[in-house]
Design a binder for these strands. Structure first.
Length: 253
DNA sequence: CTAGGGTTAG
């Protein structure tokens, strides 16, 4: 709805400045009209009066959400590498994020290491990408490197870390990784139902049902309202620990 | 004056 109004206003401007172009492109991207954004991008270049800048590129890149748009993304990436465009750190992070969304982790990593000073968002995009790709081990590996780099994960990144830690039930390095998940969780200031659920499911997968129940009780005590995912995780914990009777307690819910 | 990362099970 807002997009329609925006494009009406935009089309009424005879000579939009770069900020206007960029805002419109971001608007299209945000509403998943990447092709419209790309059309504007090409119009800027055809006009020749302005050069797309970092904002323009980030706008386009962030609108590419599906693997089928990989070709477009590669093309934009190529343009970024060419001189004449202002490639800020934002653009690099946006590219890492885009390739992560496409599950092209080799490409994401390639962009990541080319950044001289990757910021928290670039780290976050990479780590989340590995997690989404199913490589939780690598996600946690890079999380460690982030700490080595002297950076501190914020609440957004922690959400991904917890998911990765919860999924990693590898017996050999399980306890270590699980410890990391717990450590992150313990240091969280603002836990919510999702973060509790993530850790409860992680504990369950590691066969630590007793700890999972303990956390569940803590959750209740703090006045948090467990949801279906909480109970699902608790049931899972019972399966992994052979606690059939305890599982029965939750089945009535 | 505009822009980039995230959230639960099997």
């Amino acid at each position: 709805m807002g997009l329609v109004s925006a494009s009406k206003v935009f089309s009424g401007v005879s000579e939009p400045d770069l900020v206007l172009w960029n805002s419109m492109i971001s608007g299209y991207s945000f509403c998943e009209f990447w092709a419209e954004g790309l059309r504007l991008f090409n119009r800027i270049r055809e006009n020749g009066k302005q050069q797309p800048d970092g904002y323009t590129l980030v706008g386009i890149i962030s609108g590419l959400i599906d693997f089928s748009q990989l070709g477009i993304g590669l093309g934009i990436h190529g343009l970024c590498l060419k001189s004449g465009f202002d490639c800020s750190a934002y653009v690099g992070s946006a590219l890492v994020s885009m390739y992560s969304r496409f599950k092209c982790m080799n490409l994401a990593y390639g962009v990541f290491i080319s950044l001289c000073q990757p910021d928290l968002l670039a780290w976050s995009a990479l780590i989340t990408g590995y997690s989404r790709y199913g490589d939780h081990k690598k996600a946690l590996f890079f999380y460690r490197n982030l700490s080595v780099d002297g950076k501190k994960a914020d609440s957004i990144l922690i959400a991904s870390i917890l998911v990765a830690a919860a999924h990693l039930a590898d017996v050999r390095c399980g306890s270590e990784i699980h410890g990391l998940g717990i450590l992150v969780f313990d240091n969280m200031s603002n836990r919510n139902v999702v973060s509790y659920n993530s850790v409860i499911s992680g504990l369950g997968l590691h066969g630590l049902a007793v700890q999972a129940f303990k956390l569940f009780e803590e959750m209740i005590e703090t006045g948090m309202k467990p949801d279906e995912s909480t109970f699902s995780s608790l049931l899972c914990a019972c399966c992994h620990s052979g606690l059939v009777k305890d599982g029965g307690k939750f089945s009535g819910e």
